[in-house]
């Protein structure tokens, strides 16, 4: 019997964001581009990059901004998204995210060379994360 739904878990270090929600499908920002997972998907693992996860929970269409992590589809029609952070649209302060993004971009463009590798890496991830938040708030 073909399944028509999948079970979705979104786990973060600050606790599960969604646990065992039953959804008809989910869209995820993968390393190789946006991808959709539907029921009966072959088991696989792929990296998730900062972006927006979309799915329908009942009548509600949900958008969640996520950081880097990975997606795992298991044999029993479960999808686990493990990401370092996740925010729902209602939790995002878009104005603040825009301001922070400007600051980070300025730091990245000006201080090139004078900042060390660790600092640079931090700024680049921060930039991705802020962009993901802003995109999540835009319909």
């Amino acid at each position: 019997m073909a399944e028509t739904t999948i079970q979705l878990d979104i786990l973060t270090p600050l606790g599960p964001k969604r646990h065992g929600v039953v959804v008809p499908g989910v869209e995820v920002p993968g390393l190789l581009g946006e991808l959709g997972v539907l029921p009966e998907h072959v088991p696989f693992i792929t990296p998730v990059v900062p972006g927006v996860v979309r799915f329908r929970d009942g009548a509600e269409s949900v958008r969640i901004a996520v950081g880097a992590g990975f997606l795992e589809v298991t044999r029993d029609n479960r999808v686990v998204i493990l990401v370092e952070r996740a925010l729902e649209v209602s939790e995002i302060d878009a104005g603040k995210a825009r301001e922070d993004l400007k600051r980070v971009q300025a730091e990245l463009s000006h201080d090139l060379g004078s900042i060390d590798a660790a600092e640079h890496r931090k700024l680049v991830t921060e930039q991705g994360w802020l962009e993901a938040q802003i995109r999540a708030t835009q319909p």
Binding site: G30, P47, F70
Partner: peptide, 24 residues
């Protein structure tokens, strides 16, 4: 399971996250 992209690329993406996670 199927890995996409290849295993090495996947490791390249996941290892830094795993290191962070252990510290967390």
């Amino acid at each position: 399971p199927v890995l996409e992209p290849g295993r090495d690329a996947l490791l390249g993406h996941l290892l830094p996250i795993a290191v962070e996670s252990r510290l967390q």
